[in-house]
């Protein structure tokens, strides 16, 4: 069937089987490889994307269902080739990742959190990423990355000293 998908601000017309999940469609048809398949049954969260601004699991939705909504993937929050968003940069700063497989999804969950809550507590960060399983890090440096990103994003318009 023919569907229209609005991904990262671009509308694509694609022919898909109804059974094609949004995840498979993004990866296989639009070549957006940043969302990953970890379990394909909605538990690990490695496929998280933003769906009308909310973090959702793209393996738990068929592509056909997404027509009419705006989808944002990790490729859509990366400012440009070689450039990082404050959240992505904070993950590098704290080393909030190791193998990188869950990372794009973790960053999407962080985006969804910080969009609605610029100053989350540790507990709120822990809750916001609790649906994203990371097997490498034990989460500590991920939580720190999100807290650091929040702090930096809050401070973005703050006057700074010359040495800062």
């Amino acid at each position: 069937m023919r569907i229209e998908l609005n991904v990262n601000g671009t509308v694509h017309e694609i022919e898909v089987e109804p059974r094609t999940t949004l995840l498979d469609c993004l990866r296989d048809r639009l070549d957006l490889k940043g969302a990953h398949a970890g379990c394909e049954h909605g538990v690990c969260g490695a496929c998280t994307v933003l769906f009308d601004g909310a973090a959702v699991r793209s393996c738990l939705m068929f592509a056909a269902q997404a027509t009419g909504s705006a989808i944002t993937t990790i490729e859509g929050v990366t400012p440009g080739p070689g450039e990082l968003s404050p959240i992505q940069d904070a993950f590098c700063e704290t080393h909030g990742l190791q193998c990188g497989y869950c990372t794009p999804a973790m960053i999407m969950a962080a985006h969804a959190l910080l969009a609605g809550n610029p100053a989350p507590t540790r507990e709120e960060i822990v809750e916001a990423i609790s649906g994203n399983i990371c097997r490498c890090t034990g989460y500590a440096q991920i939580v720190e990355a999100i807290a650091l990103a929040a702090e930096r994003m809050r401070g973005v318009n703050r006057p700074r000293s010359l040495t800062e």
Binding site: G45, A54, V56, R57, L60, A109, G131
Partner: peptide, 9 residues
């Protein structure tokens, strides 16, 4: 119920 990402859908 589940996680924020599942409650969103």
């Amino acid at each position: 119920i589940g996680h924020a990402a599942t409650r969103a859908r």
